[in-house]
Amino acid sequence: MKKIIACVAIGLMSWVGVVAADQTNIPSHVMLTPSAMKWGAPPPVFPKGASFTVLSGDPSKAGIFVIRLKMPAGYKIMPHWHPTDEHVTVISGTFSLGMGEKFNQSMMKKLPVGGYARLPAEMRHYAMAVTPVTVQVEAMGPFALTYVNPADDPSKHAANK
């Protein structure tokens, strides 16, 4: 029994040491005012017309990231999926989400300011800005968006021009 307790204690101390070591790699805090947010074009996988800012993390790398996406009224993101869960919060405007492999506006749910959605990894979904809208997205990187219909991928159209 003493050997078991000793092994558990050694294992726990080793785990605490690893956790403590990992704490040194945590980046400093992030606090941004709206005027400090740097907006620009989103990745080419999004249709033109939106703007994008990274609040924390790096969507191109492994790890958690938080971004915001501003879209004009009528902006659509066709059916797609992500390899990780996606958490979406509506910051301003009205945003509609639908589930499935075909864009069907009548099946979409409108989310007003403060609305939230968690979309599990690989869930096929689509979106539309009902009004000018800003959403905040939190997910694990690296960010990837795969369209159900490859012809809907704007980055493929840009590559062919």
Rank of each mutant, 00 (worst) to 15 (best):
V45Y: 04
S14T: 10
A117H: 05
N149V: 11
V130R: 04
V16K: 10
H125P: 00
D58S: 06
T53G: 08
K70F: 01
E122C: 12
S56H: 06
R124M: 09
D152T: 10
M71F: 00
K110E: 15
G100F: 01
P43C: 01
A151G: 12
L69S: 01
A50N: 07
V45H: 03
M78E: 09
N104E: 12
P72R: 02
D85E: 09
G57C: 02
M99Y: 15
V66K: 00
A159P: 00
N160S: 13
L69G: 04
N25T: 13
M140W: 03
G40A: 01
S92Q: 04
M107K: 15
V16I: 13
K156H: 10
R118P: 08
A127N: 04
G141I: 00
T84D: 09
A50C: 10
Y75T: 02
H87M: 13
I10H: 05
S28G: 15
P112D: 11
N25F: 15
H80M: 07
N104P: 00
L97N: 00
I4H: 12
L97D: 00
K48V: 13
V135F: 05
M107Q: 14
E101K: 11
E122K: 14
M107A: 15
M13D: 05
T131K: 06
P43V: 01
H125T: 01
W81F: 14
D22F: 11
K109L: 15
A6M: 12
V66F: 04
D153E: 11
V66C: 06
M140E: 05
P120Y: 03
F103P: 03
G141D: 02
K109M: 14
P132V: 08
C7S: 14
F143T: 04
A159T: 07
N149Y: 10
R124C: 07
S60T: 04
G98S: 05
R68K: 13
A151N: 15
D152Y: 08
S106G: 11
W39D: 03
I26A: 08
G98Q: 07
C7G: 14
K76H: 08
A6H: 12
G17I: 06
H157A: 15
G100A: 02
I91W: 03
P72W: 08
G49T: 09
V148F: 03
F65V: 03
K2C: 12
V113F: 12
Q136D: 07
F143M: 06
P44D: 12
K48G: 13
N25D: 12
P79Y: 05
F95P: 02
A73Y: 00
P27V: 09
Y147F: 11
D153V: 01
I67Q: 01
D152C: 07
S155P: 02
F65N: 00
A36M: 10
G141N: 02
F52A: 04
P42G: 09
F46I: 06
M1G: 15
A21Q: 14
P44E: 10
M71H: 08
M107N: 15
H29C: 13
V135M: 03
H80I: 08
K161N: 14
A158Y: 08
V19L: 10
K156L: 15
V88N: 00
W39T: 02
M140D: 09
M128I: 09
